[in-house]
Computed example of a mutant assay.
Amino acid sequence: MRPQLKRLSWERVGDRLRLVYDPRDQFLLADPDGSVEKLLTLLDEGGRTAEELADVLTADVADVQAAVQALNAHGLVEDGDRLGGLDPHEGERHFSNLAFFESFATLERSHEDLRRRLRESHVLVLGSGGLNSTVIPHLAGLGVGRLTLLDRDLVDPRNFARQYLYRWDDVGARKVTRAAEWVRAFDPTIEVDTIDASIEDPAQLAELIDRTRPDVVAAGIDQPDSVDLWVNEACVRHGVPFVRGGFLVTTGAVWSVDPGVSACRACVPEDPVDLASYTDPDESTLNAISAMRLHLSRPRPNRGIGPVVGLLGSYAAFEVLRYLTRFEPPAHAGRPLVLDFARGCEANHPDEWQRNPDCAVCGGR
């Protein structure tokens, strides 16, 4: 291991050093004899082991190792031995991605390791319209190595309020075909498979997950009504995380399921307007159920406009990124993020699903 300092700046303030990597954080280190600054200078140059650093500094190896580990604990170093493995084209193509990942790199996993993880990843995208018409470009921009896209629909004029994967000349064409063509044109290194079909039953979905073996599922389909439960069961059974987003009038939500870790979709009421799903509901719950039942009694137009699905799709893509790289824990696993478009796009987590130990899908996992 050859610890390498990140793009860190420092200045001397009397007998202390001020270190800044992210402007929202700063560290003030005592350095009356200049030894810390010497260590930072050597780490900035890179290419030395702890033993070699100790030799140059005429210091004890254990002290140097402790100092490096302290810097690592604050996210200021990574392992230089894990860098330099990308070819110049990939490094240039993913310049900004790599710069972002540097913020989360450690001695154990470099920013190039995070890039390689994405290159080796496979995401199954259920639906290439609505929400996922934003998710797909984000995944392509991140450089996810393989995408399997499923959709059954044709490009329709109504799509153009929010689905920017398509062009007017595509009206009447198969969505999944055009979406795949977009990805290939954007980045020919991404492998894209297409499935022109709808989801008809749980067995079909379970077979699809088993056959394609994705690392994550990005779910953006809402038909049939029970499809979320089908996706949930297939993914939990196969240990595959999935991310879902949706929109209702002026409220949007993004949530995910981390199999074996978070509560799953089957842990919460299947039908939000079925009183049998609730135990001793209070007046507020009864009123909410009545309002939802009344709302669902009439046909629902799709009110999703570009900024709405853009925000929801971006949150969903970020959650997919968390699962693929684990650069940080999933933020919305069993903990839906709710966006209120009638109140300045206010975002919060009002409820957390409680894991049901007797759940027929995830219980015991």
Rank of each mutant, 00 (worst) to 15 (best):
S9F: 02
S9T: 14
E11I: 06
R12L: 07
R16A: 14
R16H: 14
R16W: 10
V20E: 13
F27V: 12
L28D: 07
G34C: 06
L39M: 08
G46C: 07
A50W: 01
V64A: 07
Q65V: 15
L76V: 01
G80D: 04
L83Y: 07
L83T: 05
L83G: 03
G84Y: 03
D87A: 04
E90V: 08
E92F: 14
A99D: 13
A99R: 12
R109M: 03
H111S: 09
L114C: 01
R115D: 14
V125I: 11
G129H: 04
I136R: 01
P137Q: 06
A140S: 15
V144C: 08
V144D: 12
D153I: 03
Y166Q: 02
A173D: 10
A179R: 02
E191L: 11
A197D: 15
A206S: 15
D210V: 08
R213E: 14
P214W: 04
A218K: 00
A219G: 11
I221W: 03
D222V: 01
S226P: 14
L229C: 06
V231A: 05
R237A: 15
V240D: 02
G246H: 01
T251K: 12
V254L: 00
D258A: 13
D258W: 13
C267T: 02
V273K: 02
A276D: 14
A276M: 09
I289R: 01
R293K: 11
G304Q: 15
P307L: 00
F318S: 11
F318N: 12
R326P: 00
R326K: 06
P330E: 12
A333I: 08
C345T: 14
E352H: 09
D358W: 09
A360N: 05
V361H: 10
R365V: 10
